[in-house]
Nucleic acid binder design. Sequence first.
DNA 1: CTTTGTACTTGCATTTTGCAAGTACAAAGA
DNA 2: TCTTTGTACTTGCAAAATGCAAGTACAAAG
Lengths: 137, 137
Amino acid sequence: MEKTRSDCPISCSLEVFGDKWSLLIIRDIMLRGKLSYSEFLESEEKIATNILVNRLSVLEAEHILSKRVSPTNRSKFIYSLTKKGIDLLPIIIEMMDWGAKYNPNCPRKELGKKIKKDKAGVIREYFGKLKRQVDSQ
Amino acid sequence: MEKTRSDCPISCSLEVFGDKWSLLIIRDIMLRGKLSYSEFLESEEKIATNILVNRLSVLEAEHILSKRVSPTNRSKFIYSLTKKGIDLLPIIIEMMDWGAKYNPNCPRKELGKKIKKDKAGVIREYFGKLKRQVDSQ
DNA sequence: CTTTGTACTTGCATTTTGCAAGTACAAAGA
DNA sequence: TCTTTGTACTTGCAAAATGCAAGTACAAAG
């Protein structure tokens, strides 16, 4: 059992996903519909295989992701967000908004523009979508 | 000049503050009224001095913090949030809410309860406070 | 019975972090 | 003047995390 640094909720959150990769995996599942190890590897940030395995196992251990065998392919695993994982949505959306606002290299695409116009609406919409996915599992 | 991993705003954000310490410094300034190197060192997470110096310089280089000599003590520096830094507020608040919701070790204190009741109100309130500080500098 | 797809695992070099100790320098006190 | 205190770093070294290249395992398809 590792000791936590403090009982500050921000510090506790950072101990779980305060690194350069975890939230990218969450983004891939949450906003891009990715499901499997090989799909995560394809993302443009080029995560290394050992880091990916490590992050997936940490996120699963933290009950942010759940892992099960694909119903169509028995040698494939499907990763999906739990309720706890889905609740990271507002953080992801806020980071997307901030990143797009202050980084000239990150032009707002479709979702970025929608967030700028109606952030609360986007969050509601995606909560709905993601919730339905969990319910139907 | 370092190359960025991608033009995804989430990835770009993580390249700036995707670590276990940067957002704690932001928290200290934003929510706890801390201003100086020695105050940051006192926080319960016990950041090491070399990490603190490094993060302060990165955050300053990114124009998230600004640094100036204290008006009352010429051997002291005052760090304060820029507009770009203040705009991290929603991310901080969302992380606080998520951390408190899912971590039994992180009981909601006064601010945490306020966030649970009226998150948008808290964000408005703190934006107001922080904006005034910047204006009066 | 070989190839393909999927998911890892391993080894090793590099980078980042964590910890303890020391430096620099202005202001205050004896 | 000399010493102590407060503030902000800097350095050295060990440990941990990351990045990269290569390899393994194993089910399914041909």
